[in-house]
Simulated scan of single mutants.
Amino acid sequence: MNLLGVVGGTGMDTLPDFSGSEQAPIETPYGAPTQAPVVGQIAGQPLVFLHRHGQVNPTPPHLVNYRANVHALAQVGVTHLIGVNAVGGIGLPMHPGALVIPDQIIDYTWGREHTFEAGNSGQIQYIDFAHPYDQGLRQQLIETARELALEHVDHGTYGATQGPRLETAAEIRRMQRDGCNLVGMTGMPEAALAMEAGIAYASVCMVVNAASGMDDRPLSLDTIVEILQRESGVVGTLIAALAHRFYGN
Rank of each mutant, 00 (worst) to 15 (best):
T10I: 00
T14V: 12
S19Y: 12
S19H: 12
E27D: 13
G31P: 06
P33H: 04
A36N: 06
P37I: 09
G44C: 12
H53Y: 08
V56G: 02
N57C: 05
N57K: 14
P61A: 13
P61G: 11
H62Y: 15
H62P: 04
L63W: 10
N65F: 05
A74V: 03
V87G: 00
G88L: 08
P93I: 09
M94E: 00
G97E: 06
G97P: 03
I101D: 00
D103E: 06
I105N: 00
W110S: 13
R112Q: 10
E113G: 09
H114N: 13
N120L: 11
S121R: 12
S121L: 10
Q123H: 13
I127C: 08
D134V: 06
Q135M: 09
Q140R: 08
I142W: 01
L148V: 02
H155Y: 15
R165G: 11
I172K: 03
R173M: 10
M175Q: 10
R177A: 14
L182M: 12
L182Q: 05
E190I: 11
A191I: 10
L219G: 14
I224M: 14
E226R: 14
L228T: 08
E231I: 03
E231F: 01
T237R: 08
R245L: 06
R245N: 07
Y247V: 05
